[in-house]
């Protein structure tokens, strides 16, 4: 597989503290790669290292097949667009004037300004001073700045921050469409798992500075090993039997949750529960939500 971004042993150290440890990121071309992790996990630091905004303590970054160094950094980044943490803007200038600055620096034709303004639906607000924009509009402007020059790689750090629900949906749809419409690769970070479920093709999960999962979104869902959920009339009797059988369980919303069992084992257990007077009236499989998978991954790294 061809990767547009590849890192090897990417590490960032502040004093004795390693905030990013040996991250091997592999972002395939023309996809939406969701970079997830809890707050403070090292997402922004990793993205800033990719863009050369902060010094790399160890490791290497390859973008578009070229290893990034101090000399070729700007030339390589010409083919990228980025929006890191919060949007960048000059409040005393209009949205269009802000875009003109980026357009001049990126050396792209002026007509592209109109194209990106249309793309982020900001044509009507383009001549308003940015300090009068809402946070959502500033975020759109940041996205328009990133999109100028039709970059092959778009690096977005929490791009839906501060947007209203309609704006969030709009930006998600836009991000979703970019690989298809413009052949772009979007590397997008977020701590909102539901968001990734709607946007990403591939996901990487970082926790405490370490990349603990990286694969297709479907592969992440495969981690959602189903639980067996039992509703019983007599919980005390059921718990006694389960303990005797050595089957771990947790009580959730007045039902018992057990790990997934093979068909035979499940049939036997239900039989024993009925014989023991537990009174099983419902048995169902429960899929883990993405949140639960995420928590299980980040909370029990050792199990991976």
């Amino acid at each position: 597989m061809e990767y547009i971004v590849e890192t090897r042993g990417l590490t960032k150290q502040y004093g004795d503290k390693e905030v990013v440890k040996d991250v091997d990121l592999k972002v395939p071309k023309s996809c939406v790669y969701g970079f997830m992790g809890p707050n403070g996990a090292g997402k922004s630091t990793t993205l800033k290292m990719l863009l050369g905004l902060i010094h790399i303590s160890a490791g290497q970054v390859t973008i578009g097949g070229e290893r990034v160094n101090r000399k070729n950094r700007i030339a390589i980044l010409k083919g990228t667009g980025s929006l890191i943490e919060s949007p960048s803007y000059y409040g005393h200038l209009t949205g269009r004037e802000n875009l003109e600055i980026v357009q001049t620096l990126k050396r792209v034709p002026e007509k592209e300004i109109d194209q990106v303004l249309k793309l982020v639906r900001m044509e009507e607000q383009q001549n308003k001073k940015v300090r009068e924009y809402s946070l959502g509009m500033k975020q759109r402007l940041g996205l328009a700045e990133a999109l100028l020059g039709s970059p092959s790689l778009l690096i977005l750090d929490e791009p839906t921050n501060g947007l209203d629900p309609a704006g969030i949906q709009e930006i998600r749809e836009l991000i979703r469409e970019l690989p298809r419409r413009m052949g772009m690769t979007v590397l997008v970070s977020s701590h909102l798992l539901g968001e990734m479920d709607q946007m990403a093709d591939y996901v990487g999960i970082i926790n405490h500075g370490q990349l603990i999962f990286q694969d297709k979104l479907e592969a992440l869902h495969e981690h959602s090993r189903d639980n067996l959920r039992l509703c019983v009339m007599n919980q005390t009797a059921a718990l006694h039997i389960l303990k005797r059988e050595g089957i771990p369980c947790v009580l959730k919303e007045s039902a018992l949750e057990l790990p997934r069992l093979e068909n035979d084992a499940a049939a036997q257990l239900i039989g024993r529960l009925c014989e023991g007077g537990a009174g099983v009236y419902r048995a169902e499989e429960k899929l883990k939500s993405l949140e639960e998978i995420f928590l299980s991954l980040t909370g029990r790294r050792g199990s991976l």
Partner: peptide, 17 residues
């Protein structure tokens, strides 16, 4: 101060040495 107020340096530094 416009650069600091608008957090522009992190954008500029991806386009300019």
């Amino acid at each position: 101060d416009a650069e600091l107020k608008g957090n522009t340096l992190k954008l500029l530094c991806t386009m300019e040495e």
